[in-house]
């Protein structure tokens, strides 16, 4: 499996995905195919290694979830991206496919408030349970009073 073969396979299987060649291979997946693409990346593309997952807040354009998975044997990586769309904060969880995604998605929930459906244990991981809001959202005011500390 090379990056070119992977590109061809993705184009064949996921017509709605836009692939940008490069290192890593950037794949923009429609949000409803997020879970299926993770399964495909692990089983067909051989991307056994889950590197990280995070999110980006594009303000009016909504949230974007990103994840990087790698095929360590063939030496290529796939950067998966999906745009959830304005006002949407639910996404399919990758935990059934990659167990390493568990804490990463908890952090995503903590910081961006993205509710991963199918996640076994979606709690806050870095901030305390009593925290109000999700601080990495652009709409979060960092000077929100938090007596007596802030």
């Amino acid at each position: 499996m090379t990056a070119e073969q992977a590109t061809a396979l993705i184009a064949e299987r996921f017509a709605g995905a836009q692939v940008t060649a490069g290192i890593p291979l950037v794949v923009m997946v429609p949000p409803d195919q997020w879970g299926a693409f993770a399964q495909f990346a692990k089983e067909t593309l051989g991307c056994q290694f889950f590197s990280f997952s995070s999110a980006v807040d594009w303000k009016a354009d909504g949230l974007e979830v990103i994840a990087r998975v790698e095929n360590l044997d063939a030496g290529f990586a796939v950067m998966m991206k999906t745009r959830l769309g304005p006002g949407v904060s639910t996404c399919a969880s990758m935990v059934p496919v990659y167990r390493g995604a568990n804490w990463m998605e908890r952090e995503c929930w903590d910081m961006f408030g993205i509710r991963f459906e199918g996640h076994p244990d979606l709690r806050r991981i870095l901030l305390e349970d009593s925290w109000v809001g999700h601080p990495l959202l652009k709409s979060y005011a960092v000077d929100t009073p938090y007596p007596p500390y802030r």
Partner: peptide, 13 residues
Amino acid sequence: RHGYHVVKGVDRV
């Protein structure tokens, strides 16, 4: 100081 998680001076505690 402008981080969301930082106590703005330990003299608040």
